[in-house]
Computed example of a mutant assay.
Amino acid sequence: MSKTYTNSSTKFSFALRLIVVYLLQLFIKAFDYSFGGVFPLTFRGMIFTFTFVTYWLTIWYASEYIQKKISHLNTISIVTINVLIGIYCGLSSTVIYMLGDTYLFQNGDLWEEIPFYNPELSVALCIIYLLIFTVYAYVQKIFQLKEKEVNVEQLEKEMFKSQYIALKAQIEPHFLFNSLSVLSSIVHTDQNLASEFIIKLSKTLRYIIEQNKRVLVSLEEELKVVEDYFFLLKTRFGEAIQLQNDIDPNVIETIMIPPASIQVLVENAVKHNKLSQKKPLCITIALKENLIIVTNNYDKKEAEEISTGMGLSNINKRYQLIAGKNIIIEKNQDTFKVSLPALSTIDHENFNH
């Protein structure tokens, strides 16, 4: 929906610019009696229209590019730069107009008493540019706000979808059965372990249920939940599963990620791979070049449920909406690796409110 909306707004934006510059060249023709009318059916008239519609569209797009580059400057600097662009637009258009008339159409006599900068035309075009810049900036602001609303709406839908996927994966009968089976086997033999198991299970389920209320969480918070979740796996599988966290604890507070991202990757690793004490499933979490890398040895189960890929797809869609980034999935005969972009507190401030 967002992509469709963006394409529509881009087409509308181009159509709007085309109409504006076309009307502008008609306005100039109306004051230049040498054309013999606003819609002269002459070669000179067509060349004038094509040249200035193309030139002013180019200036418009170039100006838009400049606006993006100077958006961090203060208002006075932005206005000053745009005044200079307006002056350039007026002077350059006048020179092109004069040279074209003089050398292409042999109408140099029309410009004999007019200075090359033609103050009336140059100033008029400069003022028109500034007016268009002001109005267009306002229109662009409206479109940006509208697009942001669409993205927020999509993000909310993805959050509910993520909650559904996480709940479905965790509260399936077999998950509860296996967890309760493990609990029942230790409750009479090791009450302390059983108590800790219940606490970890409660924390994991609470996190999964409540995570839809937030767009981003700190890596520190996510890793704590992964540790709780891994405790449940470790209690169930023993030495058949291993988890190694190689991320420096000093950096995890400042890194943000979509909630349950790593937890889902750990869950997928268990779901899709064989594991035994002789050949344990080894999962590692590392940070390299602004990527959180989750890797596990790949030994696909011979018989397993067909994966829909919705877990990875959901994580990727949330990254696209939040930061315009994608996760990286790499798989070979022995290894499955997923790289998650490490987001910042700026993304948290923009979306987690």
Rank of each mutant, 00 (worst) to 15 (best):
E239R: 14
E220I: 06
I142F: 10
Y138R: 14
S9T: 12
K168S: 15
D32I: 05
S276D: 11
V215P: 01
V270I: 10
K331N: 06
K141M: 13
L343M: 05
E305K: 14
Y61P: 03
G309I: 07
D299V: 09
L176Y: 06
S2A: 13
S344P: 02
L287C: 10
L99A: 08
C89F: 10
E289G: 07
Y61A: 04
E222T: 03
L121T: 09
L343H: 02
F31I: 15
A286W: 06
P249F: 07
N350Y: 10
K29Y: 02
T308I: 04
N107T: 01
L73F: 11
I47G: 06
D101Q: 05
G100F: 00
I285R: 00
N316Y: 03
S185G: 15
A342Y: 00
F52N: 00
N297E: 09
L23E: 08
T80G: 11
F27Y: 15
L291C: 13
T308L: 06
P259I: 00
I285L: 05
Q244V: 15
F237S: 02
I81D: 03
G108W: 00
N151Y: 09
I346S: 14
I81P: 02
S9V: 13
E221H: 10
K69C: 05
T58I: 12
K224M: 11
L216N: 00
D109F: 11
D228G: 05
N107V: 01
E158I: 08
V123L: 13
E304S: 15
I81M: 06
M310F: 15
K3D: 13
E196F: 10
I66A: 05
N297A: 09
E220S: 14
K234V: 04
N332A: 05
A169T: 15
Q140Y: 10
N212K: 15
E64D: 10
Q25N: 12
K68R: 15
T189Y: 10
E153R: 15
F197G: 01
G309C: 08
T6W: 08
L340D: 02
D347H: 15
S63V: 00
I70T: 05
F105Q: 01
D246R: 13
T308N: 07
V139P: 03
K69I: 04
E239I: 11
L201M: 12
Q140S: 13
F351D: 01
A124F: 14
L343G: 01
S202P: 00
D32V: 05
V83C: 04
S339Q: 09
L24K: 03
Y55L: 15
Y129G: 01
T54P: 02
S218H: 03
I85K: 01
